[in-house]
Amino acid sequence: MINSACLIVSKPLGVEASALGIRTAWACHESGFETKLLYAEEGVWCLTNTPGYHTSMLKDLISEDGEVFVTREDLEKRGLTEDDLFEGVTVIDAEEVAALCEDCDTVNYF
């Protein structure tokens, strides 16, 4: 039985899959699944406090104790730092991603 999910978003704002990722994370979290939402690759742009749906949903998720992560290396590749992100996002090293996934019953990639 699935009790926990790691959802990885690699697509940026403007690509539908990135919205599907946050929608799925929100739905899982609100339904009681232990949910980890990880942003990687171009997906890191979703965390840069832009106005609109993504930021609004992510802030709601964080305010309801949802766990949101981003990989440090993908931020650095794009010239971004932790200061460019809104509060509540946990920056992790790429080598920590495997352990994050191992903690979950399922891993899905958007």
Partner: peptide
């Protein structure tokens, strides 16, 4: 997604995207 999909998950052994 909030209703149907999460209900699927509740009775799933495997989720494949």
């Amino acid at each position: 997604v909030g209703g149907t999909f999460t209900k699927y998950l509740m009775v799933s052994d495997v989720l494949l995207s």
